[in-house]
Structure formats: C-alpha cells, structure tokens
Simulated scan of single mutants.
Amino acid sequence: MKLIKTDKTKKKADEPRTNLTERIYQIIKDDIFSFRLVPGDRFSENEIAERVAASRTPVREALARLQREGYVDVSFRSGWKVNPFDFKKFEQLYDVRIVLELAAIKKLCEMETAPDLEDVKRIWLVKPEDRLKDGPTVCGLDERFHEQLIEATGNMEMARIHHEITERLRIIRRIDFTQRNRIEATYDEHAKILRTIIERRAEDAKSYLKTHIEASKAEVRKITLHMLYEAQQQHPADSE
C-alpha cells in the first residue's frame, strides 16, 4: 500500500491541533471512500504522519476516531488495517433518513400556510439546458434539497438529527454523482417531488421520495462494489 503525498496535505504552521486532527481524519476517510485505501490495506501511523506532514499525536487521534466509527482497526503486531466496507450500517442510515423525510413531506403537505420552497424551486424547477453538470456541485445541492425539505417544516430537532445522518452518509452519497445519468435523474426526481408537495399530494410525494432515495442507495452500492473491485485489481497483494 502506497500513500501519495500531495500539496494539500502540507501542515500549516499555525494550525490548531483540533483542526489538524480533523483534517487528517478527513484525508484518511477520503482515501478509504475513494478506494486509494481498500479493505485489507495495512499502514502505520508513521506513514500517515509523513504524508500529512504532522506528528503522530493528531494522526493517532484521527485514526482512533475512524476506529470508533468502524472504518479501521489496529493490531499490536501489524499496525492499522482498513476494515471491510459496512453496507449494512449505511443502509440503516438510509432507512432512518427515509423515515424522517417521509414525515417531513407529510407535514409540509398538511401545513395551513404553504411552506416557503422558493429557493428550492429556483434550483430544481429549471429547464434541462439550465441544469448543472458538475457532479460535486450537484451532490452538494442534492444534500441541501433534502435538508431544506426538513427545515421547511420548522422542526429544528428533526433538522438536527437529519443533518447528522446526512454528514455520516455524505462521503458515500457523492459516489452517486460520478455518473451523468444519475445527475439527470436527480433533477427529474427532485422536480417531481417538489411539484407534488406544492400540489399537496402527500401520498404521491412520499412515494416519489422513497423511490428516489432507494434508487440512489442501490446505485451507490452498485458503483461502490465496482470501484472496490477495480481498486483491488490494481493492487491485489495489498488486500490479502
């Protein structure tokens, strides 16, 4: 397993340790979800510290956090190792997300005063030629679309819980936007959901939303398995 050092990982001289730990955490997590580190890969704290130009203390703190989240594990004899991809955990998070968003749609359709969805409509109810094409940009807008539906209910506790789930899913959901057809599908499906909410057709809106999220979940799983297979073929010896 070879870790590539890049300019973006250079340590800032005045960077607080909490920020440094968070940055290292995000770098390693990104490596795992971009399959630069695949299940079975082993590495040492020294390798990570050299790559990110940091001491071992913030590296150890970042790895401990990833260990608590189930992404890596450590052995006294062989150092750190990337754990198998836990689809079950992500599917459970998707299930919770669906429950929250279905409840939000029901409330939006029943509100006495129509919810303010103008900002959402300006982004998603556009002509095909005005749609954005950049995957990461659309991914960010997709995330906000679902958060804004929750926020429009006025239930900030629901919004807080939903935001926490969104953050835990973010690094895998972006895989859904590596395919052009998925970007187009997102625009079509969001527009359909929005229109049925505006028309207060709660059951149709809930059905469209559930289908939309389930399709995204299935696509993410399929793409992830394909990307994982390709990554393992590139360096199979590392995954033994």
Rank of each mutant, 00 (worst) to 15 (best):
M1A: 08
L3H: 03
I4K: 04
K5S: 14
D7L: 10
K8I: 05
K11L: 12
K12A: 09
P16H: 10
E22K: 06
D30R: 12
F33Y: 07
F33E: 02
S34H: 07
V38C: 10
D41L: 04
S44P: 08
E45S: 14
A49H: 12
R51A: 09
R56M: 13
T57G: 01
T57L: 06
E61L: 15
L66Q: 05
L66F: 07
L66I: 10
Q67N: 13
V72Q: 01
V74D: 09
V74K: 15
S75D: 08
R77A: 13
R77Q: 11
K81D: 01
K81M: 14
D86K: 02
K89W: 14
K89C: 11
F90V: 02
F90N: 15
F90T: 05
E91T: 08
E91M: 09
E91R: 13
Y94C: 11
A103Q: 12
A103C: 05
I105S: 06
I105D: 07
C109N: 03
T113Q: 08
K121T: 01
I123S: 03
P128S: 00
R131I: 03
K133T: 15
D134A: 09
P136W: 05
D142S: 11
F145N: 00
H146P: 01
L149F: 03
L149A: 05
E151R: 06
A152V: 11
G154F: 02
M156I: 15
E157V: 01
E157Q: 08
E164N: 13
I165C: 03
T166P: 00
E167Q: 11
E167W: 03
E167R: 06
R168F: 00
I171W: 13
I175W: 05
F177A: 00
Q179L: 07
D188R: 15
K192T: 10
T196C: 10
E199H: 06
K206H: 01
L209G: 01
K210G: 10
T211D: 10
I213M: 07
A218F: 04
A218I: 02
V220G: 02
M227K: 13
M227R: 13
Q232R: 09
Q233P: 00
Q233M: 14
D238F: 13
